[in-house]
């Protein structure tokens, strides 16, 4: 049998008369030294994070740029009859091209792609835009609201360690960003710094549309025609579940009533083979799920496109984005929501 002797370090309790002395003991210098060193490192890292924005991944730079536009810039002109905001995560970010959509939809139509990588909570972004005076007439959701009945409370906030860490240590990604930036651009560091600024202004010029070049690893930014993943479910039709009740929906409806905008749920692009083609619902009238404020579901659950229109398994390439945008325009025109 395998056994070891019990181990125990020095016994630790105190006699009662020692307590007061122990508490006041030799604390001050080591604690002060630790706090000072910790704070110095925190400040240094934070300054580096603020001072080196170009090392962050393109998606973060894009998200920062978008948010800045939302809260400080004017997104729409007074003569815009239809002011459209498109929300979603990175699929929406890379798929909807607002300038092409505007051109197809005609004069008086102006749209913004507010898709953000990894972000499915559109409500805070919408609220920030509304509070800054950027009020849409139509909100297009590529992802429905979540099904959570209640607002996140204090306990939920306490349980969200990743979010707490992000607040306490905003520079947490700095080592990763810096390492990858230097490694990926080791032969052209100066040019890479300029690239980031160019990409940001290009995204703003394109009103939020952004092609995630860094995730594209195939020639001409297109997947091979026979591209497939083991996780694909080519015989399964994916659904677009829309929760009946949700805190986000209630709040969204309140905002829609207050600011007078409509809500349209629109499909996202999927790779052919990722799922079976969704039944074509775009020919018929939009499904109305609420009248006041108007909430409608447009089109099929998703559009299917060949792999050649994708730059990586999830995201469309520029050509795919144009095709998706054209389909989206057709869908919007046929919906009757822009008459």
């Amino acid at each position: 049998m395998v056994f070891t002797s019990r181990s125990s370090s020095a016994t630790l309790p105190l006699a009662e008369d020692e307590v007061a002395g122990a508490v006041a003991g030799n604390w001050r210098r080591p604690v002060a030294a630790f706090v000072l060193a910790f704070a110095s490192v925190w400040l240094a890292l934070d300054m580096a994070y603020i001072g080196l924005p170009f090392i962050r991944p393109g998606s973060v730079v894009i998200a920062d740029g978008k948010f800045e536009t939302l809260v400080t810039g004017r997104m729409f002109d007074p003569q815009d009859r239809y002011r459209v905001m498109i929300f979603g995560h990175s699929k929406a970010l890379t798929a909807a091209r607002p300038r092409e959509l505007d051109a197809t939809m005609g004069a008086g139509f102006r749209s913004y792609n507010l898709g953000l990588p990894g972000e499915v909570h559109f409500l805070p972004i919408l609220k920030a835009a509304l509070e800054a005076g950027n009020v849409p007439t139509h909100v297009l959701l590529t992802l429905p609201w979540d099904g959570k009945r209640d607002r996140d409370g204090l306990i939920d906030a306490l349980h969200n360690d990743a979010a707490i860490a992000k607040v306490l240590l905003p520079f947490r990604t700095l080592p990763r960003d810096a390492t990858l930036f230097v490694f990926e651009n080791r032969k052209r560091l100066i040019e890479a710094i300029h690239d980031v600024a160019i990409e940001r202004s290009r995204m703003l010029e394109e009103r939020g549309w952004y092609f995630i070049k860094s995730q594209s690893h195939y020639e001409d930014d297109r997947l091979p025609d026979d591209y497939a993943l083991p996780t694909d479910q080519p015989t399964h039709v994916a659904s677009r579940p829309i929760p009946e009740q949700s805190f986000t929906r209630t709040r969204l409806e309140q905002l829609a009533r207050q600011y007078g905008f409509q809500i349209l749920l629109i499909p996202l692009p999927y790779r052919t083979g990722e799922f079976a083609r969704a039944p074509a619902a775009d020919a018929g009238p939009a499904a109305i799920i609420a009248d006041q404020p108007p909430i409608r579901v447009l089109g099929p659950a998703y559009f299917s496109y060949p792999p050649a229109l994708f730059a990586d398994p999830q995201h469309t390439n520029p050509q795919g984005a144009s095709v998706y945008t054209a389909d989206l325009a057709r869908l919007l025109k046929g919906s009757g929501a822009f008459r």
């Binding site: 016994t11 630790l12 105190l14 122990a22």
Partner: peptide, 17 residues
């Protein structure tokens, strides 16, 4: 084990560096 822990719970504990 009880012989290791029980005496510790009978003692007073101070905050010691």
């Amino acid at each position: 084990r009880a012989p290791h822990m029980l005496p510790q719970f009978r003692s007073i504990h101070g905050l010691r560096f």
